[in-house]
Amino acid sequence: MSRIHDMGGRFGTGAVDPDDNATFAKTWHERALALNLACGALGQWNIDASRHARECLSAADYAGFSYYEKWLGGLTDSLVAKGVLTLEELDAGRGDGVSPLTGRALKAENVAPALAAGSPYTRDTDAAMFAVGDRVQVRRPARNVAVSGGHTRLPAYAAGAVGVIELLHGAHVFPDSNAHGLGEAPEPLYAVRFAARALWGNEAEADDEMVLDLWQSYLEPA
């Protein structure tokens, strides 16, 4: 059910390289980050849609691309999907006239205020169904129930597992809906604690634990 980005627990990735330490290993990495932030300011998509655009890269591209190539791929696809750029412009390497969105372009003097303003994801909604200490079961399979192959923040490895509510975060925008232009549909969000063995079997240490942030509709009483 999941896409290639859903990596938790996957085998075959090799060792972690702590020396791969730089924030921006190459100059174009910082430019790619900046382009993503600047284009986000055009207001044509939200953070969940931009994540989904990266997730929709083909499996071969996702695996073969370096990190910021994934960002560039998702960004380019989104710009064309939203009609901000055309394929002809990409092919030509030239912009064909000034965009009607030019008034929204992020100006240098607005960068610091925009970054400092942030974008809170909490919303006022109904009370939570679960309380700290409640036992819950993650629904299975891990998928977007409204959009086939759609965006979800429910990792495949957690599907079906039983855990305990650790923290209440309040109601947050629901990515499964927000990524697809179906509205923010805020839901209570919880940090849910699992025994590592409930997720990974007896290869995990007996006392080790994992915590995931999960929306209410990902959970059922257990």
């Binding site: 910082e30 382009l35 960004l75 992020l106």
Partner: peptide
């Protein structure tokens, strides 16, 4: 990829969608 970024920046700048000075500012921030 370095050329890809450059190409995208060029197109977006020509369309008035990106201000290279704003990109510089974002990079400097982080």
């Amino acid at each position: 990829p370095a050329l890809r970024v450059k190409a995208l920046e060029t197109i977006l700048t020509e369309k008035g969608l990106v201000d290279p000075a704003a990109l510089d500012e974002i990079v400097d921030t982080y």
